[in-house]
Nucleic acid binder design. Structure first.
Lengths: 339, 339
DNA sequence: AATTTTTAGTTAAACGTTTAACTGAACATA
DNA sequence: TATGTTCAGTTAAACGTTTAACTAAAAATT
């Protein structure tokens, strides 16, 4: 049988209350006693029972991580890394992360993640775009909620977000500074607000540099599969447009599709076409030459999110604080300077 | 405040014991009372507290899912899908899955997943190859353990496994039946037993067909990144060997690398080279032509694993039962019949 | 020396379940 | 009629914590 607080108390010759106080670092306990108790705790490999603790505190130490199944299974490990970040921070703070997927076509009345119904989570992380109907459905449980990489159009929630607009600008400006003018934007899942914001950043940068080019250079397309999306979009772009010299691919999965298209059509990167991506590419994907990109701190998004959420839970405040994680331009070899 | 069993009892005019018995479908309760209680449960949105339940049953309803960080972050969604399977089945059986990653260079003394230390899981799923040192470290906690897609070399544990050998045979035999003789095997992470077994199946099939070709056709290589691995291995293969007509790539990530190599070297699939993979390819990866492959039921592996593990937990037996999930040859267009 | 304050604990109730042991009424049996 | 038996529940203890309220001893104050 696993040891309980009683066993520790007996071994250390104190009451169970003392053990509990030691566990919580209460200053009422002398350092001598503390030492003795701690020694026994270690010796017996004692760990307090979560159930017992949860029962009295009515706080379980779990946080829910909700994502659409589609996003979770994406070949890009974007959200997987975010998840890992949440796991790291949760562990640090003595919490567990419970992952649940929902359908991206969730509609009212569909079953909710069990940890919501059973209130087996102290708070909830909603990751990536989720259906509005889902958000509506869980509102009434009023658990603390925090969004990651998405904010619903209405309602004011806290969130951990990427500075997509600045990223879009950064990417575009870098292309402009490298002498490009005919810069195309290829958008993946354009209905995701993040992509919209990147597009907005792109437009802003062009405007600022007084470059006016028709909308023909912006190709969007809402297929689910980002790579095919990138491929098809590139195809579409080049049919209409022969003089593009640079492409801003709004995600790296899109970029991979674009690369395939360029390869299939004997267009060399960066000599014929310069290309910049968004999100650092997984090392596993072979891209030749290495892709210049905007790096997003995925793991950090997870850790920040958990920190903020736990804070909201602890202080029982309602906040709509937004944390914007910094992005970074990573220059590699996919862009040609044509100045 | 969330409703408790007391609230239900009061509303239904019974004792809390009755409510509990209704919850457990005890036949001691008349159907009339049962109906009344159930009605109130629904009305009040009552869900029993996990903490309270866990406390009295000393069984928490969590199962741990342990995987190396490296495997979890793989671009192939193989293990992600297995995870999803476990999640589905766990949910069905009123359990939660707690995921923890460990380092693939885990050594004695490294910190263990918290749910092991705290015994916050009733049983553990170990997924993919993990360091021997890790297995040694957790043995002493003697929690029920089940392996997925891996079995440690020593110790007799239950597991849910792929019939890799049969898969290797199936793939190779299909190539043979299509008239190929110079069939190469390109192995990804060859130190993973699964890959070894596929290789063994390959050899068996060749033997059975009386095809003798030197070991020059087997290229293995233990780089971590499967795609680069595939690329490099293909390179190596073709330097030594000019007359290969078919390749069996031991994983699909490897196959993708091989495809890139072939494309870069103007070798057409299937006209110049036939190719077969292993694991069904993610729809997102653009492969032209569609790849013939051995399909592995990933989600099913997860559900089966949870079923078996929960069974072991419930019956408190020690078993070393192995579940071999069926595989399937999926014929698409990457193989040329040269008979 | 008597009183008050501080220190370093202890006692006991509470959290929400499960379930063995009990009970009282209705029914069956001799 | 007296006595079992079955039915349909109820009572109460137990699970392992936390923490407010209490206490006994030591230290400080008058």
């Amino acid at each position: 049988m696993r040891p309980t607080i009683k066993d520790v108390a007996k071994a250390a010759n104190v009451s169970i209350a003392t053990v509990s106080l030691v566990l919580h670092n209460n200053e009422r306990i002398s350092s001598e006693t503390k030492r003795r108790v701690l020694k026994r705790i270690k010796q017996l490999h004692y760990h307090p029972s979560r159930s017992a603790r949860g029962l009295v505190l009515s706080k379980i130490g779990n946080i829910g991580f909700i994502i659409t199944e589609e996003h979770f299974l994406r070949t890009e490990s974007f959200y997987t890394r975010v998840f890992l970040g949440t796991e790291f921070e949760a562990r640090e703070k003595d919490n567990y992360v419970l992952l649940a997927t929902i359908s991206s076509s969730f509609k009212k009345g569909d079953p909710l993640p069990r940890f919501i119904l059973e209130r087996n989570a102290d708070g909830i992380l909603i990751v990536g775009k989720v259906p509005e109907a889902f958000i509506e459905s869980i509102k009434k449980y009023n658990m603390p909620i925090l969004f990651i990489d998405y904010l619903p159009p209405n309602g004011d929630f806290p969130g951990v977000l990427i500075d997509n607009e600045r990223g879009g600008m950064l990417a575009t400006e870098y292309l402009i500074n490298s002498g490009h003018q005919n810069i195309a934007f290829i958008g993946g899942e354009i209905s995701h607000p993040s992509i919209m914001e990147r597009l907005h950043g792109y437009k802003l940068a062009l405007e600022k540099a007084n470059i006016i080019n028709g909308n023909g250079l912006v190709v969007t397309n809402d297929e689910n599969l980002s790579r095919q999306n990138g491929y098809r979009s590139a195809e579409k772009l080049f049919i209409q447009n022969k003089n593009v010299t640079a492409i801003f691919a709004s995600t790296n999965a899109t970029a991979v599709g674009v690369i395939q298209y360029l390869k299939d059509n004997n267009l060399n990167i960066p000599n014929d076409i310069s290309l910049i991506g968004f999100d650092d590419v997984e090392a596993d994907i072979m891209i030749d030459p290495p892709l210049t990109t905007i790096r997003v701190p995925k793991v950090k998004m997870g850790t920040e999110a958990v920190q903020l959420l736990l804070n909201i839970i602890k202080t029982e405040t309602t906040t709509a604080k937004k944390i914007i994680v910094p992005i970074e331009l990573v220059v590699r070899e996919s862009i040609k300077n044509i100045n």
